[in-house]
Design a binder for these strands. Sequence first.
DNA 1: TTGTACGCGTTATCAG
DNA 2: CTGATAACGCGTACAA
Lengths: 348, 348
Amino acid sequence: MATMNDVARLAGVSASTVSYALTGVRPVSEATRERVRVAMDQLGYRPNALARGLASNRTRILALLFPAIERGLGGTALEFVTAAAETAREHGCHLVLWPTGDDEVGETHELVHQGLVDGLVVMEVKLDDPRVDLLRSTATPFTLIGRTARPDGLPYCDIDFELTVRGALDHLSGLGHEHIALLSHSEASLAAGYGPTVRVQKAFEQQTSERGLPALVRHCDESADAGRAVAADLFRTHPEVTALVTMNDDATFGAVAEIVEGGRDVPGEVSVLSVVSSPRVGALSHPRLTTMAAPGAELGRLGVESVITRVEQGDSPVVRELIPCRLDAQATTGPAPGTHAHTPPGTP
Amino acid sequence: MATMNDVARLAGVSASTVSYALTGVRPVSEATRERVRVAMDQLGYRPNALARGLASNRTRILALLFPAIERGLGGTALEFVTAAAETAREHGCHLVLWPTGDDEVGETHELVHQGLVDGLVVMEVKLDDPRVDLLRSTATPFTLIGRTARPDGLPYCDIDFELTVRGALDHLSGLGHEHIALLSHSEASLAAGYGPTVRVQKAFEQQTSERGLPALVRHCDESADAGRAVAADLFRTHPEVTALVTMNDDATFGAVAEIVEGGRDVPGEVSVLSVVSSPRVGALSHPRLTTMAAPGAELGRLGVESVITRVEQGDSPVVRELIPCRLDAQATTGPAPGTHAHTPPGTP
DNA sequence: TTGTACGCGTTATCAG
DNA sequence: CTGATAACGCGTACAA
């Protein structure tokens, strides 16, 4: 691989001139710039990323931090990661994947102090996340995907769960539903302080209360079987329920199957709306699920752009972005039984 | 951040001794090793990855190359990427994601010549893949996930499609099926030389022929709707078909829905077996899909381990690994109509 | 507008 | 067993 010196020699200039011709940090005459350019692609020269990083103290490498344990977001996570990587590329940056095991804090610390990365995107942030405390104490810029319980001055990109729940309830209320239950993630995820679980439940309880509706919440493991079981129990104890808001893709499929087999028509007697999901997943269900799509790609893009901005100018304002899920009305939501729906359902 | 010189000074030794105490490349007395150790964690010293890479000409960074365009493997891809990243970590390596756009070759070339990575894992390899030609001409080790048409001396990890198809046909034949159709990916993917599409079709045609069965192949876009349409057409023109081997998750769901709505019982009248899929996806269907699970995690792990081996000892033998999909017999496959199944179905 | 010289934090070579 | 010293490839004051 050709080095800068090789280029300099061939072009008959000094190495620093090559450097300046490359970065444009100081003026270079058109003539020599051209000679350098010719020499460069004659040698197929590419600047060495390592040497550049060492000298400039800027690696243009970002890290994506995520706990490798759980099967969290599923399909959304892939979109997220892909979008993040693409965005990094567009900005001339690299993105390294950094899965953390049991010792989240230690492994994060290790990464930061290797001096390899300019900034971090932190996935799967919990309400009380020890990684955040660590990162605050370092100089490395970072952006959270998700939020801690009180994300004071922290930069984050997250789903707007309040607006998402509002959208879901608006849709169902508009269809005349008054007995709406929430099928959420597992108790364990709630106990672990998993943001989506906590925030959706809180928003659901608050907003149903505001609307004078009863708040029925069920937790459920992430599997179709668990979904079946919980749905069966739910409709046995609460036959008055006519609509289900779910946030648990696997369980949703089980729940729908159970409801239908239990002799209730979907959406004739029970409507199902799956939030923090995606139309693509919804299309796998029959009848096709009404979903609210998680903004995975948007979050990935925003998260990376936000750290890059902070890396390039450390005094830039902190990004705090909340994006709601997007409604995609399909076949599992319809008018409540015995209701003349007065609000046109569905997305434009 | 403390440097090696800081450590050396504090420990009262030379910088090179610190280096050797760290790497163990040359013997260091127990006494000084201990002094160095103390100095190190007194200063919280961590070796600088960049400087180390520059000096040693070994970055311990691997790249994962993938075309960002298509929504290829879906859930499997996430498993793959996660496993790859974890494996890299276990070996003290970093994994950077390198999504390529339109100019696959150019962007790959760029990456390789930045001197940032020690080796590459190349995803989504096509039968005739220009990236491979490029990589052969460089000194950077790489491993393909997938294979070219004639992967002569190339290192690769791929699904064993022949064994997978054999497993599928064995399962169905054992249930008495004699009219088996293949629901594959789109024509476009076939034309693009997408390995799984081409190889599964070839294996299917060959093996059905060997068994004296008719070979019925249908291509289908990656969507539930397309699956419906193709299934409808298939059973209209070929009502004798009693079993469907599918390799197209989204389409499979549509196909099952169409079959059931068309008045055919699954698996009573038609069996469906989805290959290169996963039990998790299968569980979303009702009745639960019999699947053959793509070995995503295994491939990710093997791919990374294989490049690392090549990086560490360039003369190591070329890895050529083929892994079949694993059968998970569930509710969508059963005895052919009018048959007394004589072979016990299901996985061991 | 250009060249020189030094530093970034390690590893590797060569003495001792 | 240990210490100097020279690379590694590039950025950047400083000087011209």
